[in-house]
Design a protein around this nucleic acid. Structure first.
Lengths: 216, 216
DNA sequence: ATTACTAACATACGAGTAA
DNA sequence: TTTACTCGTATGTTAGTAA
């Protein structure tokens, strides 16, 4: 139930803080909000009656302080808004280049993968992946902002190969590539691999420990 | 000017995200909010007319998407709330012990200060202050989390003495003391003084450059 | 199933003013 | 100066329906 006097509650918190007291007068608040003195008076009493604030009113002015219910109401909306904006926020992450074990190169040598990658991503990957480490939570929220493209697994006479998730990203603001998450991987969760139509190590003169930027 | 239909705007953002589209129907939204189908219909059209959202309505349902003005309105409240709640967060700071110039000791020798400190803080301070330096922004946000206690100035035949702000803190998680900010001070803004009922240097065997923790 | 108009009703607002 | 009451008016809401 959207609390009717939410904005007045917010104003009180803005001036008095979460724990502190907001000392003012109904006319000053009226000026600040565009409401009338009478409406402010009434609204404050409503907030107090509903236990959002503790209110003291006298011919000297008013003093308001958040009660638990008031803090909770504000925190709830704060949490909603955090969630909304943090989804879009993580559009860029920074990874630290690491040396891989040549696995990526091995898998990318199979045309069954390459065909699909070319078709679904729009480029034929350079034969090799660039591994990088990144904060796990950041990586997780970054992934949420990206569209998932699935590359199917396949089987040869010898063995079967798992599928992989691919997500298009821009590397260092220049090269269009993709982060890939193989279904079967030995990489720790704070590590990921990126592929691109070119040799990223060469193009950006990357050494282990260097930083790369990935954008959605 | 608090936007009237803020909560509906928030609901749209919650479901459709900042960039995405929220596909629903006025009756579903009515059920979710406790409003009537008619009111939801009207409010959506109001939000659209005010350019907060782009709205498409048809016998198949409604589809809403945030416009720049809508994003801005939500972000503004998000920023307000962040500020309010981040103020309480900074409840602990670390300072670096510095040697003072013995000024604190001089001032604390005046009973006019000591009387008030004892009465308003609940302890009689040890004759001497401990100076420490701390990140200025951190100090500033820490101060906001603390209750201000004012110690009045006074005058003798020879000269007048300024007042000082005192704020109760716990030092190194053990000793209850207070940070003091004299009205007239020569200390740089990233430096502060702390007083306590005991000799803090002795108690914690502090040398210059040692760290102390201060909690609200 | 939808959205949204009309009209009756409920609530909110603020000018005047008392305390 | 204050807060806050009364009360006429503006605004918001929703049931009944049309499309």
């Amino acid at each position: 139930m959207p609390e009717k006097n939410f904005f007045l509650l917010l104003l009180i918190a803005k001036h008095g803080g979460v724990e502190g007291e907001f000392v003012s007068s109904t006319s000053k608040i009226a000026n600040a909000t565009g409401l009338s003195q009478q409406s402010v008076s009434r609204k404050l009493r409503e907030l107090a009656k509903q236990q959002f604030i503790a209110l003291q009113a006298s011919p000297a002015g008013v003093s308001a302080k958040l009660l638990e219910k008031g803090k909770k109401a504000l925190l709830e909306k704060y949490s909603d808004l955090s969630e909304i904006f943090s989804k879009t926020k993580a559009k860029k992450i920074f990874g630290t280049v690491q040396s891989g074990l040549g696995e990526g190169k091995y898998y990318l040598s199979f045309k069954q993968y390459v065909y699909q990658l070319k078709e679904k991503l729009g480029f034929e990957p350079f034969l090799g992946t660039l591994n990088f480490s990144v904060d796990e939570a950041e990586l997780s929220s970054f992934k949420k902002a990206l569209k998932e493209i699935y590359i199917n697994g396949f089987a040869t006479k010898e063995r079967s190969f798992g599928g992989l998730l691919a997500m298009k990203v821009k590397i260092n603001g220049k090269i269009l590539g993709a982060v890939i998450f193989p279904d079967r991987t030995n990489l720790p969760p704070d590590t990921a691999e990126v592929i691109a139509p070119i040799n990223l190590r060469k193009k950006f003169e990357l050494k282990d420990g260097d930083k790369i930027a990935l954008e959605a």
